[in-house]
Amino acid sequence: MSTTTTSTANRITVATTWLDGCSGCHMSFLDMDERLVDLAQQIDIVYSPLVDTKELPEQVDIGILEGSISSEDDLEKAKAFRKHCTLLISLGDCAVTGNVPAIRNHFKLSDVLDRAYRENVDLQPQIPTKSVPVLLTTVKPIHSEVEVDVFVPGCPPSADAIWYVLSELIAGRKPDPSQVTRFGA
C-alpha cells in the first residue's frame, strides 16, 4: 500500500471511495490490522479517503466502492471509478443492494428533506442547496448504474473476507466471495 512515487510499476494499484454508506466497510478494511503492513508490500493505494492524493489516476487496477448511489456526486464517482478501474468491487450491502440508505426510497425525497430541515428545526428552516450535491429521488445499488466485477456482501464484510478477496486478486485468481460472506452479517 505504499504510495510513494518510487513504487515499482508492477505493483497492483488500488483506489477506494465511499458513496452513501457509513464508512463501516472501510473500517472493516482497516480491521485487517497487521495484515495491512503485508498488503502494503504488494499494492499501492493510489486514491482513497485514507490518503491525501486527491485525483483518481488515469488507470487503476482495482477500484473498491462502498455505499449506494444517492446523489449526483455519488453517480459521478461511480462512473469515474468504472471508467478508470480495470476491475470494480462493490463492497458491502449498501453497494450491493442499497441496504439502509435505500430505505428512504419508501418516502418522497421532499418529505425526507422536510423532516430534517424544516420540521426538526428551531431556526431558519430551509433546504440546503448551495455547494451541496443534488440528491437522487431513488437510492440505487452500484450495479444498477455501472457494471460491477466482484460483489462482496456483508454489513460490513469481515476483514477476513476483504483479505481473501484482495489476496486472490493479487494472486491473479478471480475470488468467489460467496464462501466467506453473507448478507447483513
Binding site: D20, G21, C22, S23, G24, C25, H26, M27, S28, S70, S71, N99, V100, P101, I103, R104, H106, F107, D111, V112, L113, D114, R115, A116, N120, V132, L135, C155, P156
Partner: peptide, 25 residues
C-alpha cells in the same frame, strides 16, 4: 444527506438500535 429522521418512521422501535448503528461505521 441520508434521512434517518424520516425513513425510520413505521419501523418497530426494537429495530432502531441495529438500524441507526448504520449511521456510522
Amino acid at each position: 444527506f441520508r434521512g434517518f429522521e424520516k425513513f425510520c418512521e413505521g419501523r418497530p422501535y426494537r429495530e432502531m438500535p441495529a438500524l441507526t448503528a448504520r449511521t456510522c461505521g
